[in-house]
Amino acid sequence: VLSPYVKAWDNEDHEIFTLVDDLEASEGNDVNFYSWLGLEPTATEEDINRAYRKLSLAVHPDKNPDAKSKEKFARLGRIKTILRNPEERKRYDFFLKNGVPKWRGTGYYYSRYRPGLGTVLIGLLVLISF
């Protein structure tokens, strides 16, 4: 029963979801790919390139030795890749307009929340006791 849901989003979609979540967690809920780069969704490729380099200078781990900057820079690199690729950019624009889905298949939630051994045992106990 689950598999149709699981198959509903592919790897590229999942990557966008993860990036959106990570970006919001790090920069604030109202930040999207464009606004992080200081751009409008109508930005040209040239604008994106320029803004990417500008932001790189600010977050590049060479300049910022803290652990967070590496994550940030890696995120920036992936966002750039998506926005520079017309097809992937279209995909992101779709989610930007319609919102990212809440239900993303079981796997997605496992990657966010993984029950510990205790929780599983208690869960099992509850199940068995019925």
Binding site: T18, A74, G77, S111
Partner: peptide, 9 residues
């Protein structure tokens, strides 16, 4: 561009 991180299922 590096450093980077990529996840696939």
């Amino acid at each position: 561009s590096m450093p980077t991180k990529k996840l696939k299922i």
